[in-house]
Amino acid sequence: MKLLTRIGIVSLSLVLMQCEKDDICAESTPTTPSLIIRFYDFYNPSELKAAEDLNVFGIDNSGNTFDIIGQTTLTTDSLALPLPTNLNAASFRLYLGYLDEETIGNGDDFLTEFQTEDLFVSRACGFKTFYSELSAETQTDSDNWILSTEVIQTEINNTIHAHVKIYH
């Protein structure tokens, strides 16, 4: 009987130990990747060049903008943009020299197109979107600060490497 009790306790703790991890999608799990942009110097294309006081908005179907990286400006040479998971195109407005709502600097519209495929991750995380056939361009306006755009990886399945280079 003692043995039976002991086996019972060991079995129960084995079962309980297994429960935790699967119920919450761990932050370290690779899920839907963002689009990684790196900023380069147009006149010296091998050199990274930070975009100063950058602010980014998403543009929805009716042309309205919405916050996408939070209400902050960044000075950075690398930017991660979340893409929609149920559309095949996404537009962003990238402002350079955005100081506040009065002084918004120069805004350029950055347009992307892609194919999506949903891949199973796990019970807790569900699915993630895999993007392929990525294309990107900057809409020409009277005063572009983005001088050139180059897609260097058409498949987005991780956020380790950059997918798009923006020259300015």
């Binding site: 899920t31 839907t32 998403g58 998971t85 149920n86 569900g126 979107t129």
Partner: peptide
């Protein structure tokens, strides 16, 4: 679809 940033409508 699991995303860490849900600013786009899903």
């Amino acid at each position: 679809v699991y995303t860490t940033n849900q600013t786009w409508p899903y």
